[in-house]
Design a protein around this nucleic acid. Sequence first.
DNA 1: GTCTATAGAGTGATAGAC
DNA 2: GTCTATCACTCTATAGAC
Lengths: 185, 185
Amino acid sequence: MPRQIAERADLLPKLADVFRTRGYAGASLGEIGRATGLGKGSLYHFFPRGKAEMAEAVLAEIDAWFAVEILGPLNHPGDPRQSIREMCRAVDAHHKGGRRVCAFALFALDDTRRIFATALRRHFQVWIEALARVLVVAGRGPAAARTEAVDAIASIQGAMVLARAADDPRVFAGTLARIEARLLA
Amino acid sequence: MPRQIAERADLLPKLADVFRTRGYAGASLGEIGRATGLGKGSLYHFFPRGKAEMAEAVLAEIDAWFAVEILGPLNHPGDPRQSIREMCRAVDAHHKGGRRVCAFALFALDDTRRIFATALRRHFQVWIEALARVLVVAGRGPAAARTEAVDAIASIQGAMVLARAADDPRVFAGTLARIEARLLA
DNA sequence: GTCTATAGAGTGATAGAC
DNA sequence: GTCTATCACTCTATAGAC
């Protein structure tokens, strides 16, 4: 069947699922092949550099989603409180209410982070800076805005850790609600 | 000559190092053998159930350390502010100032968490409850103490994620200092 | 014929189990 | 050390679109 059955873009959500559940080291090509329904030939056709390129593409796609859904509201001029509300709604959607981890957080914790160091650094840096700018518009001083942004984003990541450890997504939802309340205060 | 050169207890710190840097799936027996200087035969002598038993032993050893260094001060009757200060000092030591991840957080994020679900749930639950009790002694209401404990511990975990992503341990130190200040407020 | 998407046998290396 | 299974990956073959 030589006709185009799969497109690279269609593969990315399935790849993301595998990396999110297994981690980078734990995601085997066998599992990836099963999840996508593709043989190794097809996978290497789309991603000539193999697993590393697949994970890069997944991170890039998440970043593209972030640019629209998270950074978009934050960079949009207007009511900073509205930007914060939209960010928190998007964060909840991204994490499926505490049931889905962020691949960036997952990759950051083990030595997978060395492979994707640049993407990891930029992802969180851009987010922190965008949130800090909104907090300045909302009336914080520049230094306080920066630390508050760091702490809010750290809390989001940590809430996912606790929710997964407790096997209870509500831990994430509860913490996210308090983060939003504090940012809006 | 089967003379006893290694003891199981002496292996645990080295095993912990491997699991912390590679993750559970990424930690191979080859790497573990290299780190411990032991052959596979010796490893299976000490841990008949293989890699899973090694990781269990590592988590149990961390929990034992936690019981003394973190839960000890929290459960010790006396000045709650002093308990909080000692907890934060122990947390900083445990994470080597942001340079070392917590194996529980690492295991919680991917599907390794299913293997160690009970240990993960209990680890954070016990910590949250002990910190919440201290906050009640410090004057918070029971519900506020509980949410504040959850948020503080989530922030600690998330600060490690950000510190690793930024490749800058100071991110952890800064956030931990602010967590301590808020708990003491 | 060329190009692209596919399948999968086959590579050596290495995995975990014993 | 020895075992088998599986790893990431390579390569050949092939079927259709042009």
